[in-house]
């Protein structure tokens, strides 16, 4: 189908709709290049199988960072309490197995996502009326309260010592959880890819465009009749659900969690990863999580005491030199290349 003429479209509402659809479809097209990171990730268990254990942890953080990017990068909601949903998901999946004996992984993961999403819907509907420091502080306070509860209710959660007795049955009844961690790696890979595709689809949908509009100019969106709070709450719910799935993955892949999943450090770390990679493009979340986790791990090996120095310098460098995050550099180079070719 040929692109409708914009002038004609302006006159004709139906054509306008078609133009919008075409625009959306054009952005939705997954290019071959989109497969590269996933192919690379897929190669790990075959080429670098000894890295699967660490790779699984990275994938979980990638998924967690993706969930944050969706609300932060697309809807402009700045939060320091995303660990609340990650932790709720982790405890849902963990408690299902450890306390109720429900060991089937996929349904456990769905439950983790649903519980976190429900919590996201309720808290989002209340919290998203606020902005700036109030929102930051409210999100911190709520995750801190959950953290305190996890410590106080240690009969249920295991508290500081952690939730013991999580025992996940083989994936699809077939694949057992091996020592190298290939099963958990592939499991985490498939789950994060599905979540990525879903998020990608949503971000280019009209709903995603609405979020973009709200981020850029909330007042105008409200003026043209967009139910801002409702849209934001929906986005927050989706994001919380995905964070919950990430948490559930953590509980299942490690067969263990502690109340650390709910801590402020966890929220701060995922935010750092995301901003490091660059917000609002999903790939930033991937790059940021991978770079941060690798830097923290490898620097700690070089000199365990001072990995913080390296990560700190990296953060300052990123803000001062490439404020769009590491992936922003890629974007800039790509755009420059494009112009040059033209």
């Amino acid at each position: 189908m040929a692109d409708p003429d914009p002038l004609e479209a302006a006159a004709d509402p139906e054509a306008l709709g078609r133009a919008a659809q075409a625009f959306v479809r054009a952005r939705d097209d997954l290019r071959p290049a989109d497969a590269i990171p996933w192919l690379l990730a897929l190669a790990v268990p075959f080429l670098l199988s000894q890295e699967c254990a660490f790779g699984t942890q990275i994938l979980i953080m990638v998924l967690f960072a993706l969930s944050l990017d969706f609300i932060l990068g697309y809807a402009g909601i700045v939060t320091l309490g995303q660990a609340a949903y990650f932790g709720l998901g982790a405890y849902t999946a963990g408690l299902l197995s450890a306390r109720l004996g429900w060991n089937e992984p996929i349904s456990g993961l769905l439950a983790a996502g649903l519980v976190a999403a429900a919590a996201g819907a309720v808290s989002g509907w209340i919290l998203l009326r606020y902005r700036h420091l109030a929102l930051l502080m409210l999100t911190i306070a709520i995750s801190t309260i959950l953290y305190e509860l996890a410590n106080t209710w240690s009969w249920l959660t295991g508290g500081f010592d952690g939730l013991m007795g999580i025992s996940i049955s083989p994936l699809l009844g077939v694949f057992d959880w091996d020592l190298e961690g290939r099963t958990s790696y592939l499991y985490a890979l498939v789950v994060s890819m599905l979540c990525f595709l879903a998020l990608r689809r949503i971000t280019v949908s009209p709903f995603g465009q609405t979020l973009h509009g709200i981020r850029e100019n909330t007042a105008r969106m409200r003026a043209i009749g967009v139910p801002v709070l409702g849209r934001l709450t929906l986005a927050y719910t989706i994001s919380a659900g995905i964070a919950g799935i990430g948490g559930g993955l953590l509980a299942q892949a490690n067969s263990f969690i502690t109340m650390q999943v709910l801590s402020f450090d966890t929220s701060a770390a995922v935010l750092t990863m995301l901003v490091l990679g660059g917000t609002g493009r999903l790939y930033g979340a991937m790059v940021g999580a991978v770079v941060y986790m690798l830097a923290a791990d490898r620097l700690a090996r070089l000199s365990p005491e001072y990995w913080e120095l390296g990560v700190g310098l990296l953060l300052v460098f990123v803000v001062l030199v490439c404020p769009d995050g590491l992936f922003g550099v890629v974007d800039r180079l790509r755009r420059r290349g494009w112009r040059w070719r033209q």
């Binding site: 502690t258 650390q260 700690a300 365990p304 990995w307």
Partner: peptide
């Protein structure tokens, strides 16, 4: 190896 904060993970 550095086990950092006590998360178990």
């Amino acid at each position: 190896r550095d086990s950092k904060e006590p998360s178990g993970a």
